[in-house]
C-alpha cells in the first residue's frame, strides 16, 4: 500500500525517473565526469585566478565604475592601429 502511494506521488516518480536514468547511464557517466572537470577548471581555476571582473574588483560603486569608463572614453588616443 505504501509502495502504491509512493508510486503515485508525482515528486517520487520524478525523483525515481532521474535516479534510475542516472544509474543506468554508461557513456553518460564519462560525459558527466568531463562536464564536472571542465566546470571546475573554468570556475574554480580560470575564473578565480585568471579572470577577475575588472570593474567589480577595482571599484566599489557603480558611480566609480562609470567615472572610470568615462575617463577611458575621453582619454586622448595616440594610436589606434590594429593588426590586420
Amino acid at each position: 500500500m505504501e509502495q502504491m502511494i509512493a508510486n503515485n506521488n508525482p515528486f517520487v516518480r520524478v525523483y525515481r525517473f532521474y535516479r534510475d536514468g542516472f544509474r543506468n547511464m554508461t557513456l553518460g557517466k564519462t560525459l558527466w565526469k568531463i562536464i564536472f572537470i571542465k566546470l571546475f577548471i573554468f570556475f574554480g581555476v580560470l575564473k578565480l585566478f585568471f579572470f577577475p571582473d575588472f570593474l567589480a574588483t577595482q571599484f566599489s560603486t557603480d558611480e566609480q565604475r562609470a567615472d572610470h569608463v568615462l575617463g577611458e572614453l575621453t582619454r586622448p588616443v595616440q594610436s589606434t592601429t590594429l593588426s590586420k
Binding site: F42, F50, F51, A56, V69
Partner: peptide, 16 residues
C-alpha cells in the same frame, strides 16, 4: 561561458 569571463576581464569598458 569563457567569453563572458573575457568580457569582464579584457573588455571591461565594453562590458560596462
Amino acid at each position: 561561458i569563457i567569453m563572458e569571463f573575457e568580457f569582464g576581464t579584457n573588455w571591461s569598458n565594453y562590458s560596462w
